[in-house]
Design a protein around this nucleic acid. Sequence first.
DNA 1: ATATAAATGTGATATAAATCACATATTATG
DNA 2: CATAATATGTGATTTATATCACATTTATAT
Lengths: 226, 226
Amino acid sequence: MKPDCKFCKMKSPAAELLKPDEIDTLEQNCAQVKFSKGETIFREGTFATNIVYLRAGLVKIHMKGPIGEKILRLNKAPAYLGLPTTFGDRVNHYSATAITESEVCFISLDAFKNFIYSNGNFAYEIIMDLCRSELADFQRFTNLSQKQLPGRIAELLLCFSNHLFKSNAFELPLSITELANFVSASRESVSRQFSELSRLGIIELTHDKKLTILRKDMLDKISTNG
Amino acid sequence: MKPDCKFCKMKSPAAELLKPDEIDTLEQNCAQVKFSKGETIFREGTFATNIVYLRAGLVKIHMKGPIGEKILRLNKAPAYLGLPTTFGDRVNHYSATAITESEVCFISLDAFKNFIYSNGNFAYEIIMDLCRSELADFQRFTNLSQKQLPGRIAELLLCFSNHLFKSNAFELPLSITELANFVSASRESVSRQFSELSRLGIIELTHDKKLTILRKDMLDKISTNG
DNA sequence: ATATAAATGTGATATAAATCACATATTATG
DNA sequence: CATAATATGTGATTTATATCACATTTATAT
């Protein structure tokens, strides 16, 4: 589908800094595609040929680990998906899969590189973006590696509530099995933790994955105490 | 100490792309400092006021976690230290400490920003650098979170041997306690693993931390089998 | 050099979480 | 719609690893 970048209201902060002629170039080197829930946007092991910009939707970034799939992060629009795996190597080191209906712009790598070369503000914004994600990643990995399971799950739920959905009530974007490989635990253990949180009245979780945080204070405490 | 960037043989790949007048600017906005083993180069929680470039030496990047210090990565020269924590927030999210005698250049943040704005090749190289480290970090975190202790330690030793020292024999750059918080385990467990690896004749470890890998094949197997 | 502190090795024990086992529910699919 | 396939919940058991305890070695400071 042909995009209309000039009047696009979902431009990235970096793209907002492009000059009119650059926006024209972008428009000519950009393809907009819809993905439904569960569809793969790019896959580990394949060649990284385009810059991938998430215009709308929610996506999981995941890679094969020694004992199975590992979810590395969730990205919600607006966000570039996998700049590091596009620039860092010819081959993708991880995959991106739509969690909800999503809209993605595929941008020609060469055009994008040229923006970096020719537009310092654009380059700077991309650098800032990469830097902020690394900070968030380090923080998450440190917590994941030091907290035990109840703390890891509490943290994840708080992250969903505070940052992703900005609400105490939301639909779990991942299955229990996926949550398990996000927090690096067995699905049985995660399932038990949810039962326990429900039993204690800290959360309410319906059969159709609607989750409500009833005692955020308790979740906070569980999250910090590991 | 006044640096001599023009004739410096340890320039970063990015700095190699600077034009003569930019090199002059760099030289005027750069201070070279030596750190001895154990000295802090920058500290979590303090303001990030300079770009930090490791000209020579070996450094650990570490942050406070819920149950104690966590080592995130080792950086050997040449490398920028903590670009993400310098750009991503005003305050450092992690610390850098010299593991060996090290030489560091502190570069004015404004000068560095201007290079990004004005020199696309420089900006591109910085982006590539950030991207490559994220790939390596993701890989390491996935492995650390899925492998169990013997595999994590085997992987770390192989990484030391293959990438850091490029030799089967080297001096352990970290104490047992530090290794433990690198691989997210207790120091007792790590100590036991080393005893076991020695007992099996896979490594030899002397009292003064000189380590020799005797059976790389076995380490490889332990590393892959988790 | 001696005292004091910090790091290390190793056994015994406790514990978090994985695994196994199986019932039940939910979702795809011919 | 029926049947298979997949995901989930929960008890019983096992296991990896943390914790505790303490001896010993190594580093640091006075």
